[in-house]
Write a protein that binds this DNA or RNA. Structure first.
Lengths: 129, 129
DNA sequence: CCTGGCGTTGACATCGGCGTCAAGGTCTAG
DNA sequence: CTAGACCTTGACGCCGATGTCAACGCCAGG
């Protein structure tokens, strides 16, 4: 199939597909006229990439999943490399949630404070960057 | 005081301070030689901006706090506009945490699945963009 | 033949908060 | 006088994924 059809099936733009290719994630045979020609495996790869991106993965992080599919596995996460990315991602999420939690508490505190006495100096907190 | 000193006291770069000014957040008198000249109020404003940015606020969102300080309040969050930003931010955080939670669960599920049977097709999930 | 819908590559624009370099002016100590 | 530490404005670079425009090639239908 050609790039337009693939884009439709995957639910993305041709621009994105070409970008994934430029990043070495989506190989492409060319038919006689120079048009990209995709097969079923490419379709699965493209879908894998999209679903991971939608979840919040960086394009780079989809690489192991793509490699895994290309290696003949029926699922992109059938390989240890990919599973490792899952784990890393979960840790990142935990860290993120933790930070957000801290900020949330801080803000709640500020709200309290602002509610009680609308005229007083507030303590600062530094650190982070 | 001049910009270098302010940057030191606030714990940021002169570049940042100039940037805040370009965004209309940090006014600046000029001394005879053309150098920016900051006073105590500017210091408080700059600190307010920094602490909010460190927390995860966008520069734009600090505007009400700055205005509040400039209006003569001793705290940047002494005004309703600023408090409203607090509330919005808390909502954003809640949304974000919720999404992260969903993704986390999904990933945990994938981990389980990948552990059990390393050879099977996995269901996709769409939607989001 | 011509139009229009597909494809191709290439390159610039976006968003935010800066870093960083350039080319100059200013002031102070030695 | 000069070095050098400060200041000025202006402008380009970055990151990631993608939109969008340009200028062109390919191909099928009327």
């Amino acid at each position: 199939m050609r790039i337009g059809e693939l884009a439709d099936k995957v639910g993305t733009s041709t621009r994105s597909l070409r970008y994934y290719e430029s990043q070495g994630l989506l190989g492409a045979r060319r038919s006689a006229n120079g048009y990209r020609d995709y097969d079923e495996l490419d379709l699965r790869v493209a879908r894998e990439i999209r679903s991971l991106l939608d979840i919040g993965f960086a394009l780079e992080e989809t690489r192991p999943f793509v490699a895994c599919l290309r290696a003949g596995n029926s699922a992109g996460d059938a390989c240890p490399d990919a599973v490792a990315v899952y784990r890393r991602k979960i840790e990142e999420i935990d860290d993120c949630v933790e930070r957000l939690h801290a900020v949330r508490s801080h803000l709640e505190g500020q709200l309290e404070r602002a509610k009680e006495h609308k005229e007083k100096t507030c303590p600062r907190l530094r650190r982070n960057t």
